[in-house]
Amino acid sequence: MQRVAGALMGALIGDALALGCHWYYDLAELRQECGPWITDYLTPRPGRYHGGLLAGDLSQTGLLLVMLMESLIHCAGYEEDDFTHRLDTELFPQLDGTPMQGPGGYTNQSIREAWRKRVSEKRPWGACAGDADTTEGAERAIAIAAFFALQPKKMAEAACSNIILTQRDPAIVAMSVAFNAVLSQLISGVFLTPQMGTRLMAQATSGVLPFHQVTQGHLHPPQGTEKIQAGQFSSPDALLTAGYAALAAADPDIIIEPAWKVSLVYGMPCAIYHQLPGAYYLASRFREDYESAVLHAINGGGQNMSRAMLTGALVGAQVGLEGIPHRFITGLRDSQQYLALASEMEQCAGLNAKLR
C-alpha cells in the first residue's frame, strides 16, 4: 500500500495545505479571509505568516522534513553528523534569528533557539537545544519513523537523538518520540484504534521503547523494586494518548461536530500537548479518509499547520499513497521531487525490514 510514502507525502501535503491559512486564532477572520470551508492550497495573504510564498509551497518545517529524508537516504540510515552538517551549511546561513525570515517564510522557536546557540554563541551540537514545547521535533522525525518503521527500538533511538538537537524538555521529547512510535505502528499495517496504547505499552514493557514502566498491566502497581535505566523517559503516559483519543473518536456518547471543532476541545495553540490529541482524534475518526482528516485539521484554525502535518502523516500511513487524493499531490509544488524521495524512502524501509 506504500504506507511509507503515504506517511511522508501525507505530512508534506498537510503542511502545504495549511500554509495559506496558518495561525488564524480568530475563526471569524479565518472564514472571512479564506472562505467558509478551505478545500485546497492557498497563497498566503500579504502581511501574514509565510507572506511571499505561493499556494502549494512548503513551510520551513516541511523543508526540514525533506532535508532529513535526503540525509537518511544518503547515509542509508540516521547519521547525526550528516544532518547537522546540512543544518550548518544549508539552513542556518539563511537565518538571522528573527521569526519572519528564512526558507518557508517563518522560522519556529526551536530552530531560532538552536541557530542562536550554534551560530551566535558557537556552541557544539548537543548544547543547542531550547525550551520550546512545540511539535517541530516530532514533525521532523516523521522521516525517521518512516525509515525505521519495522524497527521500533532503532526508530526510537534515532528519533530521540534527532529531536534533542533542538528540544530539551524531557516531557516534550517523550511526547515527540511517542508520536513517531504511533506512526511507525501505522506504517507497519495496524490502524489507529483504542488498542494502540496497549500495543505501545507492550513494547515499553519488553524494552523496545525507552519508556520506564511505573505500573504493570492495566495500570496496576509494579511488583518489587524497578531499576530505571539511563536514558529512559520517566513515564509511559505519552504512549497512551493516541489510544484514548481513538477511544473518544469511537465512543458514540462523545460527539465533536463538526470534527474541525477538535481544535476547540483540545486547544488551538502550538504546544504539543494541544496538538497531539487533536491529530490522534482526527486520524482515528477519519483513518480511511485522508481528505476529511486534513481538511478538518486545517479548518480548525490556530496552529493548523502542525495539526494538519501530524494528522496527514498518521492518515497517510493508514491509507497509503494511493489513498491520498491526486489533486493534493499535483497541487504540491515540486511534488515530483518529493514523490521520488518518498519512493526511495519506501525502498530503504523495505531493505531495513529485511536486515532486522
Rank of each mutant, 00 (worst) to 15 (best):
C348A: 15
P277R: 11
N304I: 06
Q167I: 09
S59D: 03
F83H: 11
L91F: 03
R116G: 07
L192C: 08
A308H: 05
S234W: 12
W260E: 13
L314V: 06
I329R: 14
A297M: 11
I142K: 04
Q232E: 11
D251V: 05
L239G: 00
L332N: 11
E29A: 15
L282V: 10
C75R: 14
L219K: 09
I38Y: 00
S263R: 14
H218S: 13
T61L: 04
H218I: 08
Y78Q: 01
F286R: 06
Y78K: 00
F147I: 08
Y280V: 10
L219H: 13
L54Y: 04
Y266R: 05
W260R: 15
Y266T: 13
A340T: 06
Q32V: 02
I163N: 03
V4A: 07
E157T: 13
G189A: 08
V190A: 03
I329D: 07
K153R: 15
G14T: 02
T134A: 12
R307L: 14
A181V: 00
E29K: 15
E70F: 08
N299P: 12
T311P: 05
H74G: 06
V262F: 04
M9W: 08
R327N: 02
L30A: 11
T241C: 01
C128Y: 02
V265R: 13
E29R: 15
K117M: 13
P36V: 01
V182G: 02
E322M: 12
Q229F: 00
F211N: 03
L186K: 03
P93V: 08
A141T: 14
G302I: 09
D96P: 09
E346H: 04
R45W: 02
Q216N: 15
P44M: 05
C348K: 12
S235E: 15
Q336H: 10
M345Y: 04
L30G: 08
A174D: 07
P236E: 08
D15H: 01
D57L: 09
L295M: 15
A204K: 09
A293E: 12
D133C: 10
D169W: 05
G77H: 03
S71K: 10
W115Y: 15
E121F: 05
Q216M: 11
A238G: 01
L264H: 07
R45D: 03
A159K: 07
G102C: 00
A202D: 15
L186C: 05
G52P: 08
Y244R: 06
E344Q: 14
Q229C: 01
G207H: 07
E322W: 10
N299M: 13
K227C: 04
L183Q: 05
S235T: 15
G97C: 11
A353R: 15
Q203W: 15
Q32P: 00
R112K: 14
I324F: 12
A11G: 03
A158R: 07
Y290R: 12
A340E: 10
Y244P: 02
G300I: 10
